[in-house]
Structures are given as structure tokens and as C-alpha cells.
Design a binder for these strands. Structure first.
Length: 212
DNA sequence: CACCAGGGTGGTT
DNA sequence: AACCACCATGGT
């Protein structure tokens, strides 16, 4: 039960993270696209710009002008690709009858639908499943890969499937998985990015005791 | 200056 | 299947 125990200690060290910060479910979806390979700070600027323009709504965003969208998305980086992706997402949600229309889909088919959308890969799909639809899903990102690699200390490092298998069963509810993912990110941001050694890491008691 | 941030995609071995 | 370059802004 290493992941569950780690989760408990991360919670003690960092406190509740309150993810995902957003006013609406659709805002979470847009944010999940905009935050890719960017800081949350910059993604937030783009979200604020869209919100200020009243475009953080599937119907409005679906018919928005691309050049205008590029202007709003710019601070989040990759504005040419991301602007098209958020509009495609809006059209997808709209065609599905809104977020409320998607809720009735079973998790596996909903996941496939999300993966069909441009700019939505495994990580973004799982983040949306977890934070928008409350499905008990393990979100595997770079932080969790490093975290698991340190925890397992194995060569070769655990695959994504290994990680999902290990976490599933230790942490099962969507609420716990939400908090777990947020805590792993919070911890990872302060942690050295070098995978193997934590013995000189000063930011976390978890790091020190994970290395006997 | 180099490197990085809450990835995904299309192309090449 | 494993690698790779690319996308682009803003902070350190």
C-alpha cells in the first residue's frame, strides 16, 4: 500500500489542493487543453481572456472566429493549435448535448469519445474523466511517472499500465484520486526532476524515507 | 543564455 | 514499439 501511504503523507505536507480550480465543468475541459506543456499561470490568463469575452460556453465558443480565439489563447502558448482544439471541443460538447448529455455515457465509451477529439490524448482524457465526470480514473502524468519510478526504484521504470494497476485498489474513489493527482503534482513541482536519487532532497519527508 | 511548464501529433527508425 | 521534432508563450 505504498501509494495510499504516500498520499497520506503528501496530504500532511502540502495540505488539500482543491483541484480542479474552475467555475464550470466546461471550463475544466478547456483548461485541460490549454494547460498542456504550459504553466497553470499562463493557461489561466487564456481562460480569463476567454471568460471576459463570454466565450467559456460551448455554444459561444463553437461559433467563435479563429483569429479572435488565437488572440485570447496566445498567453497559453501553441496558440495556433490550441485555438482550433478548444473550438473543436466546444463543437463536440455541443453536438453531444452538453456536459449533461455526456454524463450518461459509460466511462470506457466516454473515454474513447474524448480520445477521438483533437488535442485530447490519454492524460487529458483521464483528467477530464476524473475532474469533470467524477469517474474513478488514475491520471498518469510526468509527475506520477517520476514519483512511481522513485517509489518502485526498479529498472526498467514502471510502465503507465503498471502505475495504474498499482494505484488502483489502493486509492479507489474519485475524490481520493482527485486529491492524489493534485498532491503528486504539487510535490513534483518542488522536487528535483532527476529520477533516481532523493537522498539529498530537502523538500519532503517522503523523499528521504523512501530511500533507505 | 539555457531550460522548463499539469501533452499531443505526425513522421521516421 | 520506441524515438523524434515540432508546436510557442512566459518565467527563472
Amino acid at each position: 500500500m505504498r501509494f495510499a501511504r504516500s498520499r497520506d503523507r503528501l496530504l500532511l505536507e502540502h495540505g488539500p489542493q482543491g483541484w480542479w480550480p474552475a467555475d464550470t465543468p466546461f471550463e475544466i475541459m478547456v483548461g485541460a487543453l490549454l494547460v498542456q506543456r504550459t504553466t497553470w499561470r499562463n493557461a489561466e490568463r487564456a481562460i480569463a481572456a476567454l471568460k471576459r469575452a463570454g466565450l467559456l460556453d460551448p455554444r459561444k465558443l463553437a461559433s467563435a472566429d479563429l483569429a479572435t480565439l488565437q488572440d485570447y489563447v496566445r498567453p497559453a502558448g501553441f496558440y495556433r493549435t490550441k485555438s482550433g482544439r478548444v473550438r473543436a471541443l466546444a463543437r463536440f460538447v455541443l453536438a453531444a448535448g452538453g456536459v449533461a448529455g455526456l454524463v450518461r455515457q459509460p466511462t470506457d465509451s466516454l473515454r474513447r469519445m474524448l480520445l477521438d477529439q483533437p488535442g485530447i490524448g490519454a492524460e487529458t482524457a483521464d483528467a477530464i474523466l476524473l475532474y469533470v465526470f467524477g469517474r474513478p480514473v488514475v491520471v498518469v502524468d510526468a509527475y506520477l511517472r517520476r514519483f512511481a519510478a522513485r517509489l518502485e526504484a526498479s529498472n526498467p521504470p514502471p510502465t503507465d499500465a503498471d502505475i495504474v494497476r498499482a494505484v488502483t485498489g489502493e486509492i479507489d474513489s474519485a475524490d481520493e484520486l482527485s486529491e492524489f493527482h493534485a498532491l503528486v503534482v504539487a510535490h513534483g513541482k518542488r522536487h528535483c526532476r532527476k529520477i533516481p536519487r532523493c537522498d539529498r532532497c530537502a523538500v519532503s519527508s517522503l523523499c528521504r524515507s523512501a530511500q533507505p
